[in-house]
Each structure stands twice: as structure tokens, then as C-alpha cells.
């Protein structure tokens, strides 16, 4: 706790790091706090009794929404689950999920992004945080919240203030060079999903090349190949999430 300010009511203030040094405040200085550079101000994200938040990003048409639908089918029975969509056009992805009946309407929130889906998941995450909070307030404790990014480019990544883990989805139809091109999504996502493998022969994509390039870019971080046509439950991705939720323990 900052020594010269009282805790605000219900305050979620960051804890100063170990090397915090108090200093004196001059009389004409405005009152202020000191978010320590070593501390993430989003305190709630430190392990706590709240849902695991998994971001799902990737270029337009790579199959993010279909993956979310598959995960809802696979996990909807066993986990308390909700989805936040970030669309270019408001509710398109949310509507897809509703039409496919994978999740009841009250478990889906659409966030408007003002033409900039990457801003809403990275630079200004307030609307997404509000949506997650509202879902938790309405539905009670959740185990898992999937935050789907609007289709963007290879540079879009989620802020750690918003999510705990992120999945980046690319597809073989985008070309087998995508993993080699890298970009923060491909290199840093906690899970890389190479989707639509059933199309590989049709578009002349070499999965071995993609696998090799992905390993080179990502080091130890896992990559899975997926065809939602053949595996409607997105088994490897669902399994990866199950383990994360299991490690975390049930929400309060």
C-alpha cells in the first residue's frame, strides 16, 4: 500500500513492487498515486476467483468465430462459459453464434469497436472489460470467458490487462508462408492454431513447412493443426483450455 494515501473504498490498487521507495510530496503538488512500472495496474488479473479469459485473434476469415462455436459445443456442458465478440460490424459474430445455437444469448456480448478491433483488445480495453464484468455480474461466477477479436491483421494482439492467454488462428488458405512472416500474433500467442488443414491440398499449402516455420518462430510455444470440418469439437484446442482451467481451479 502506498504509505501516504488511504485505500479507496473497494479499491483495486496495484501493490507497489519490493523496490518501491516512498518520497515526499510538495505542498503545491496535486494529489497522485504512483502506479509502479513493475506492476500491472489491473490487479484483478493476478490469480483470483474469476474466470480464465482466453483471447482468440487472427486475420479475417481464418475461422475464429467457427473455433469459438466449436469450443462452446465442446466445453459448454462442463464449464460455466461466456463469450465477448469484438466485431468490425457490431453483432455479426455474436449473431453467428446465436444462429448456430451454441450458446444462449445471455452468455454472449458484442462490443462495438469503432472501426478498430485491435484498439478494443489492445490499446483501450475498457469496453471489453466492462462486457466481461457485466457477464459475470449477470451470470454469476464463470470458469471461462472467450474474447474473440474482430478479424484484423497479423499484428493484432490482446492486452494482458484483458486476457490471461491468447490463441492466434491462421489458416492454410492464407498461404504456407504465414508462420514464417511471424508478427506478434504468430510468435507470441500462447497457442497457435493452423486452421482449415482440409484445404491444404486444394491451395497447395505444405503443412510440414508451416509446422517447421512455426516451431522456428515460436520456440517452445505450442502449435496445433485443426480442421473444423473433420473435428467439430476442436479437440486439441478444447483440451488445451481444459488443462488451463484445471490448473487455475474453479471460480468462486
Amino acid at each position: 500500500m502506498h504509505p501516504d494515501h488511504a485505500t479507496p473504498a473497494g479499491g483495486a490498487w496495484p501493490r507497489p513492487s519490493e523496490n518501491y521507495v516512498p518520497h515526499a510530496h510538495g505542498p503545491d503538488e496535486p494529489p497522485h498515486t504512483h502506479p509502479d512500472p513493475g506492476v500491472d495496474p489491473h490487479q484483478a488479473l493476478a490469480a483470483g476467483p474469476r474466470a480464465l479469459r482466453v483471447g482468440i485473434g487472427g486475420p479475417v476469415g481464418s475461422g475464429k468465430t467457427a473455433l469459438v462455436a466449436a469450443l462452446c459445443r465442446a466445453l459448454g456442458e462442463e464449464l460455466r462459459l461466456a463469450v465477448v465478440t469484438n466485431d468490425i460490424y457490431t453483432t455479426e459474430d455474436a449473431d453467428f453464434l446465436l444462429r448456430n445455437g451454441v450458446l444462449p444469448a445471455e452468455r454472449i456480448r458484442a462490443v462495438e469497436t469503432g472501426c478498430c478491433p485491435h484498439t478494443a483488445i489492445r490499446d483501450d480495453i475498457s469496453a471489453n472489460l466492462d462486457a466481461v464484468e457485466d457477464l459475470e455480474a449477470t451470470l454469476g461466477p464463470l470458469d471461462l470467458v472467450l474474447v474473440e477479436s474482430g478479424g484484423d491483421n497479423l499484428t493484432a494482439t490482446f492486452s494482458k490487462g484483458l486476457i490471461d492467454r491468447q490463441i492466434f488462428v491462421v489458416d492454410v488458405a492464407g498461404g504456407d508462408k504465414v508462420p514464417r512472416k511471424g508478427g506478434p500474433g504468430v510468435t507470441a500467442a500462447d497457442l497457435l492454431v493452423i486452421n482449415k488443414t482440409d484445404l491444404a491440398p486444394l491451395v497447395g499449402a505444405d503443412l510440414a513447412v508451416m509446422d517447421r516455420d512455426a516451431k522456428e518462430r515460436r520456440g517452445e510455444l505450442p502449435t496445433v493443426f485443426l480442421s473444423l470440418v473433420e473435428d467439430r469439437a476442436a479437440t486439441p484446442v478444447a483440451e488445451w483450455i481444459r488443462i488451463l482451467v484445471g490448473v487455475r481451479g474453479p471460480a468462486g
Binding site: 494515501h5 479507496p8 473504498a9 483495486a12 494529489p31 498515486t33 502506479p35 475498457s126
Partner: peptide, 19 residues
């Protein structure tokens, strides 16, 4: 109100807000 709520979220991280 949505923007007010978002502004408070940012504000709390920067300054000590009154109730």
C-alpha cells in the same frame, strides 16, 4: 454512462478518486 464508467476505470489507475 458507458464512457463515464470507462473513464473511471482509467482514472482509478492514475489518481485517488473520491467516492
Amino acid at each position: 454512462r458507458a464512457q463515464g464508467r470507462a473513464l473511471l476505470r482509467a482514472g482509478r489507475a492514475m489518481w485517488a478518486l473520491p467516492p
